[in-house]
Design a protein around this nucleic acid. Structure first.
Lengths: 327, 327
DNA sequence: CTGTTAGCGCGTTCAC
DNA sequence: GTGAACGCGCTAACAG
């Protein structure tokens, strides 16, 4: 930078200003500086800048896995909005080990991000303490946490699952099955199951363990769940699959069996990002706008970084019950 | 850090060593330092460390889009290997605008990453100059570039597409259609199309523009392509979709129509990450190990950062023709 | 609009 | 095994 300053016959600070706040530098100086920069191929050193200004222009994001289009959409939303403001995304997956999360967070914070995003309802107490001490804006997503650390952009897994189940009840289905992830390890599955059960109570329907099923994510698993639930309880008339893949897998299985959907059995899903819109019949499902979660989170982080007041620090992006033809 | 030093009754430099090279510090000092750190909740400042040591422990990765499970897998592979060595990933999508890439690169380099990964065959001359001047290890992926900047971990889009087409020819198909991305903006699509055409020549089959089709990625687009190609040329007996989504979309469309696959028409794909394994019939496709690309790239970057010699700086991870039941 | 001064919090280098 | 001095490249704060 000293070189640039010398070449442009100004001081270092003027070069600095020309780069970050160009309108505070005279036209001519800016011109000479720009020339010097292109001539020398100078690339500013943001590490030094960050140390001096105490701002890195980095946002750290922690998602369960990077390799999953649901989180991919959210990351894309984050990245798009952040980049427009000159911020970049440092991405990590949390994995399953909760001890790992603390070490991870420690090294992440050592990079002094200006803000953080978590697609997790966290967190050990130590994690919470670290985050509080960091004094940076934080957005949690994934569910509406009971005890938010800071800001939240989420949707209610409970409400959406309850609404989907109520919808099935209103449509006249009386034996409604439910499929979700392992509730011991997946808090979102837990919430969706709670929503399902609450709806059953509201509908005055009995809760039947033979048609409540936990299984890993996958098409095949959806087809299997369909087999098992219909065998366990032959008069089952609807199944709410709390993820897109299962629902589509089950639909395909129905096609193979020649079962009419919803004639023989009604099928409802959760999320319909990529595959659901393409199947026949169109999937009735609880939709969540994943990319919007990322965009909103980024906007809120940027507002807080700029020192602006954030009107609503807990945002519910909600859900939509898409009324397809499958239920 | 000064606080820690005072608390542990050592100098700052000893604290620094205890953190980065613990074996160069006496057991007792290390113990006192560790205590002081947990007591105060100190988190080291890697920004300052980076400025002093000229190493950030950041790797920057540029992929076409984050929101795509294919690149997601590669990013996951990168992230996994890097994190084991204390490195983190800064992720960007390049978008379509080539001018945008230069600005992006400029700001990325200003963060002084210790290495870079591109899932692109790049690059304007200015881009190449910037990268060369940065003097950091670089891995390109996505295709085997004719003029590598530095290291490469890739697969040949040409070879794999040619092999897939030849496989279809060997299976007896004679009117083989082809679907790819816009060849003006997507170099990988260009290469795959070249491979397809080369195979047709080798098979002595005519090249028929009515059954070569470009379309954006998506299930629906795959179904549409199936409609269009079969309408354009009713005796078409196979289609090679050069991406998973199209192939699966077309399979689903065949199911809707009650067409036997491969009885009425054979279908082949490219990649089969998430969806293809679940469809019926199993998808014949050209498989590329996306996660491995990320892992290898990370290992090569780390080796070079450590100053080690990298045996093979251009690695071809190859492809596999998976012989499913759809063709 | 521009410049001067004084750090930011570490790691390198060299000495002990 | 430990420490002192110095500087990494930039920007905040203040002055002009």
């Amino acid at each position: 930078m000293a070189d640039i300053a010398k070449l442009a016959k100004v001081s270092a600070i003027t070069v600095s200003r020309a780069l970050s706040t160009p309108d505070k530098v005279s036209e001519k100086a800016r011109q000479r500086i720009a020339n010097a920069i292109t001539k020398t191929g100078y690339v500013p050193n943001r590490v030094a800048g960050s140390l001096a200004s105490n701002r890195t222009r980095i946002i750290a994001a922690v998602v369960p896995t990077i390799d999953n289009s649901v989180y991919g959409s959210t990351l894309q939303g984050l990245s798009d909005v952040l980049r427009a403001d000159g911020y970049h995304l440092m991405v990590c997956n949390s994995g399953v080990d909760p001890r790992g999360e603390e070490t991870l967070l420690f090294t992440l914070l050592s990079h002094r991000p200006d803000g953080m995003f978590f697609h997790n309802v966290l967190h050990t107490d130590k994690t919470r303490r670290l985050l509080r001490a960091a004094k940076i804006p934080i957005v949690e997503a994934g569910d509406l946490p009971s005890r938010p650390i800071d800001m939240v952009v989420a949707y209610s897994n409970f409400d959406s699952a309850k609404a989907m189940t109520l919808y099935l009840g209103r449509k006249g289905y009386r034996r409604i099955g439910f499929v979700c992830n392992d509730i011991r390890t997946n808090p979102r599955a837990r919430e969706r199951r709670r929503g399902y059960l609450a709806a059953l109570r509201a509908l005055n329907l009995p809760q039947d363990p033979r048609i409540i099923y936990q299984t890993p994510l996958g098409f095949r698993e959806g087809a299997e769940a369909l087999s098992i639930l219909t065998r366990n309880c032959p008069d089952i008339d609807a199944i709410f699959f709390s993820a897109e893949l299962w629902a589509v897998g089950a639909l395909l299985e129905c096609q193979r069996r020649g079962w009419a959907v919803p004639g023989r059995i009604a099928i409802a899903g959760y999320d319909d990002h990529r595959i659901a819109p393409e199947v026949e019949p169109t999937l009735t499902s609880a939709r969540v706008q994943r990319m919007k979660i990322g965009q909103l989170a980024a906007e809120m982080l940027l507002q807080r970084i700029r020192g602006e007041h954030v009107e609503h620090s807990v945002v519910d992006v909600g859900y939509e019950i898409f009324e397809g033809l499958s239920a």
